[in-house]
Design a protein around this nucleic acid. Structure first.
Lengths: 341, 341
DNA sequence: TTGAAAGCGCTAACAA
DNA sequence: TTGTTAGCGCTTTCAA
């Protein structure tokens, strides 16, 4: 017998299907003796409830999807994505949910809608910093619950989780300031990217609070890639040299910036202090090891999945406007900064 | 109307459920006019077939799982895993399958069996180098089709895909030999790990073919981690110094070995040439950039998923003993090797 | 505490 | 070419 069904168990145990179902679902309304006998048969026969049948009758699948706006091809090469997936997977396991990766692949709107509307998923974690509004609209149209990873202030009813980017930017600035640096530049991520803007905001706030100069010139736009960081640093160096330190919107940017600094004959940290953001594994391995703001990415993924599952299991219970908890970040001091003067 | 069903569409279009089903499944036995009308209604109503109902009646879910023997926590920190997942996901998308990540999380045998036996998955890709025999036995017991990523010769009936590790080991040795080195050591992965043994085998074959010495002393066992590579290199240096080059079982090992060499006052590549295996992203970023054997990891994932889906869709069609195609590897020459003498 | 029966949304064998 | 019908394996009233 490859796959016994409820019926099989019921017949062998001499009870009805309903009773077996109750036993399987821990319904208290079953006699102790009957329960034991049924359990015994279930064990003997190696019975496991059929997921599809359950999903059909219950109207939910106990699985959630992971969606990303970017092409799948690039996702797993980001240092960011894998630990995020891990956090999501951890939380799913803990709550007894399956994690389905497919919908992030089907990039055509039709493909996406097909998956989303098929009832295969109870909800989805949208793991992308730059969520297009069209994407969100489509998601809402699908009547599929979802949560966002990353800050989102435009549509208030959407639940989201995020690291405390503002605090991180502030920490970076305060650290550099504490080292005695005054002329501190910043290479941000793309304007319009909430995450990047928050980090920059924290940085600027701390600089302003200390009376340190921040100008249009001292802040250049990167794109969160190594190449972007390199290019941005080159621009910084050519247009307005003389900075003692630079705060970078993420680690890749910082690594690119260090490469450009080296190329320009500067030594990090002797001539230029550099602070990154994220603490990707690479950060500790570059030369010099990068001082950076650590983002709890795995925790972020877990928080997102947990929030989603909470929404799924207790619909309407969470006040949608409740401010989501910001996950704490911390500074990891390594060797890319040195005291000024 | 949140979710129209077949019934809804049938009623509106004035046909039977069967006809709608035929249209949805592209069954040719539908009149052109009827088909068009039904399609129209489907579009208007935003109908999408319910996945659970389909899975129930068809007895298959069109989704596959990804299983790993190791703890989930460590998986996504390996440089190897993310691109593998990407390849699998790519192939899944192409064939219209969903990829479910959950089963690699539930580490208890009961948890695993629950998922595997629930019919939620049509098959699973087992992505782990060191598959325990108990694990395989359990998998077979579940009557769930699966394929292995990585070489597997012990149980012949199990389909697997693998990079050409032997050729890779040979390439590394031949390259080092061509540079004029004779005293070449090797730091392998764990004995008993098929992948590691194949790489070493290729290396030894090429060395032997060239009449270069290989001894028990010149081959030490690592564990495919950076720390393991560091420790192994230290051992090599203390017990039998004077090697001109070292072939490492993977890149992490090579990076650790380079660190140990530096620590011992050796310069890479001037005093010691180092070759790695895998070509993880890190390989190009370390100093000096690592010469290594590139493994097509994403292609490997895609091949595994494709093979699995082939097995699922054409049961019995593939001769189980057919030698699986070995995916080609290539040497990536960077700056960690220098000509000898 | 237990069972009978209806039905979740779909496919497929059989009829017409 | 189309419709009727019988389930797929499960949960869940409603009765007993």
């Amino acid at each position: 017998m490859a796959h016994p069904t409820l019926e099989t168990i019921a017949r062998i145990a001499g009870v009805s299907r309903a009773t077996v179902s109750r036993v399987v679902n821990n319904d208290p309304r079953v006699g102790a003796e009957t329960r034991e006998r049924v359990r015994q048969v279930i064990r003997e026969q190696g019975y496991h409830p059929n997921a599809a049948a359950r999903a059909l009758v219950r109207g939910q699948s106990r699985s959630i999807g992971l969606a990303a706006h970017e092409a799948l091809g690039t996702l797993f090469s980001h240092a960011y994505f894998p630990p995020l997936v891990q956090g999501i997977a951890d939380a799913c396991e803990q709550r007894g949910y399956s994690l389905v990766l497919s919908p992030l692949a089907s990039q055509t709107p039709e493909g996406l809608m097909g998956v989303w509307q098929s009832g295969q998923l109870d909800g989805v974690v949208v793991a992308t910093a730059a969520v297009g509004d069209a994407f969100l609209a489509r998601l809402q149209e699908a009547h599929l619950p979802f949560v966002l990873v990353g800050p989102h202030h435009a549509r208030p009813a959407i639940p989201w989780v995020s690291p405390d980017n503002v605090a991180g930017g502030r920490m970076a600035a305060e650290y550099l300031l504490s080292l005695g640096h005054r002329r501190v530049a910043a290479i941000s991520g793309a304007r319009g990217l909430g995450t990047a803007m928050e980090r920059l905001e924290g940085f600027c706030m701390a600089m302003a609070a200390a009376g340190a100069p921040v100008s249009d010139e001292s802040i250049v736009e990167g794109d969160h890639t190594e190449a972007g960081g390199y290019a941005a640093m080159e621009r910084l160096l050519s247009h307005a040299p003389g900075y003692e330190a630079v705060f970078c919107g993420n680690d890749l940017t910082a690594i690119g910036a260090m490469r450009a600094a080296k190329k320009a004959g500067l030594t990090v940290p002797d001539d230029l202090s550099v602070v990154g953001f994220d603490d990707v594994p690479l950060a500790r391995m570059v030369d010099p090891p990068l001082t950076t703001i650590r983002q709890p990415i795995t925790a972020l993924g877990a928080a997102a999945a947990t929030l989603l599952i909470d929404v799924l299991e207790r619909p309407g219970e969470l006040p949608p406007n409740a401010a989501p908890p910001l996950l704490p970040v911390e500074i990891v001091v390594r060797e890319s900064c040195r005291a000024g003067r």
